[in-house]
Simulated scan of single mutants.
Amino acid sequence: MRVNERDNETKDVLLELVAVAFLATGGIFVKLSTLPPISTGFYRVLFSLPLLFPLAFRGLKDLTKRDVLILILAGCFLAGDVALWNLSFSYTSVANANLLTNLTPFTVIPVSYFLFREKMPKFFLMGAVITVIGVFILLGGKINPGKSNYLGDFLAFCASFFYASFILISYRLRDRYESSVIMFVSGFGSVLVLGVTALLAEGIQIPHGAGELWPLIGLTLCLQVIGHNLLAHCQGKISVNLSAIVCLCQPVIASLYSYFIFAETLSTKEVLGIIVVMAGVYLVKAQYTNHESCRV
Rank of each mutant, 00 (worst) to 15 (best):
F47N: 04
S48N: 08
L49F: 06
L51S: 05
L52D: 13
L52M: 14
A56P: 11
F57S: 08
R58Q: 12
G59A: 11
K61L: 10
D62N: 15
T64Y: 11
K65S: 14
K65Q: 12
R66P: 03
R66T: 14
R66M: 12
D67S: 03
D67A: 01
V68G: 13
L69T: 11
I70E: 00
I70D: 00
L71I: 00
I72Y: 06
A74H: 00
G75M: 06
C76Q: 05
C76Y: 07
F77A: 02
F77T: 03
L78Q: 04
L78S: 03
L78I: 10
A79R: 03
A79W: 01
A79E: 04
G80H: 08
D81H: 08
D81F: 08
V82T: 15
V82E: 11
V82L: 15
V82Q: 15
A83E: 12
L84F: 14
W85T: 10
W85R: 11
N86L: 06
S88W: 11
S88K: 09
S88C: 10
Y91V: 11
Y91N: 11
T92D: 05
T92S: 09
S93I: 03
A95E: 06
N96E: 09
A97R: 01
A97Y: 02
N98S: 14
L99W: 08
L99Y: 05
L100A: 09
T101E: 14
L103V: 05
F106M: 15
F106W: 13
T107H: 08
T107L: 13
V108L: 02
V108I: 10
V108Y: 04
I109P: 02
I109V: 15
V111N: 03
V111P: 02
V111F: 08
Y113G: 06
Y113L: 10
L115H: 07
L115Q: 07
L115C: 06
F116D: 05
F116A: 06
R117D: 11
R117A: 12
R117V: 07
R117P: 05
K119Q: 15
K122L: 14
K122W: 09
F123K: 13
F123P: 02
L125E: 11
L125H: 13
G127Y: 05
G127D: 07
V129L: 12
V129A: 13
V129I: 14
T131S: 10
V132G: 03
V132C: 11
I133G: 01
I133M: 13
V135N: 06
V135C: 09
I137M: 15
L138D: 00
L138S: 01
G140H: 09
G140K: 09
G140T: 10
G141I: 00
K142P: 08
K147D: 12
N149R: 10
Y150E: 12
Y150V: 15
F154E: 00
F154D: 04
L155F: 15
F157A: 12
F157K: 07
A159W: 05
A159F: 08
F162I: 04
F162H: 01
Y163A: 00
S165V: 02
S165C: 03
S165I: 03
I167D: 00
L168Y: 00
I169M: 04
